[in-house]
């Protein structure tokens, strides 16, 4: 989907994005600083409780977004089991799951615009040093806008290949896709200039 923020409005949507990010920072640090199993379990429990607070739909879509962390959790558990330190593996897996769950919670309750605003505020000192932070502000929405477009283009190339070949398309499509992306970049640069954008 275009945006990862949840359409279900929660109280946390109204909290300032900077505060949420700072809290996330503190929580992640605590997760890695405290070595007690009860603490780790409690933290995961708390994170899950936070997911459950806004209701079942939010909980379900939130946990759905977390599925991506499962393979990594599995990998860590297997690795540590094989290398003879299963307890350490459980700790690490718990920490990882909780940290990602909390970070995802911030993503789900914060609009992209608010996140960009935080970035702008944090970047102000860098801007004074001459770094073009305003380019970053345009670049972020551009990435989100053009990711699905590029996926679509790749799909069209695969189709064009399969329409004329019985073999499966392979890395040969990488170069044409890159060229298509560059072509798109030219067009977007023009569109940005036509409306006074930063390019």
């Amino acid at each position: 989907m275009i945006s990862l923020s949840s359409p279900i409005r929660t109280r946390a949507h109204r909290w300032p994005a900077g505060a949420k990010l700072a809290a996330l920072c503190l929580a992640s640090t605590a997760l890695f600083a405290v070595d007690a199993l009860w603490f780790q379990l409690a933290a995961l429990g708390l994170a899950l409780a936070l997911y459950a607070l806004p209701g079942l739909v939010f909980l379900r879509s939130g946990l759905g977004a977390l599925r991506i962390v499962l393979p990594f959790v599995g990998l860590v558990l297997v690795w540590h089991a094989l290398s003879g330190s299963p307890a350490e593996g459980v700790f690490l897996a718990l920490r990882m799951a909780t940290a990602v769950a909390l970070a995802n919670l911030v993503t789900m309750t914060t609009s992209l615009e608010d996140l960009t605003d935080v970035l702008r505020a944090l970047g102000r000192p860098l801007q004074r040093l001459g770094l073009p932070m305003h380019l970053l502000e345009t670049a972020i929405p551009l990435v989100i806008r053009f990711t699905p477009v590029l996926i679509q283009k790749a799909g069209a190339l695969v189709e064009a290949w399969r329409a004329r070949s019985a073999r499966r398309p392979g890395p040969q499509l990488v170069l044409p896709l890159a060229l298509l992306a560059l072509d798109d970049a030219d067009h977007v640069a023009e569109a940005l200039r036509a409306r006074g954008g930063p390019l």
Binding site: S3, T138, L142, R145, D184, H187, E190, A191, L192
Partner: peptide, 9 residues
């Protein structure tokens, strides 16, 4: 329009 629209929303 695909070449013109810059933002996701």
């Amino acid at each position: 329009p695909e070449h013109q629209i810059i933002f996701p929303r």
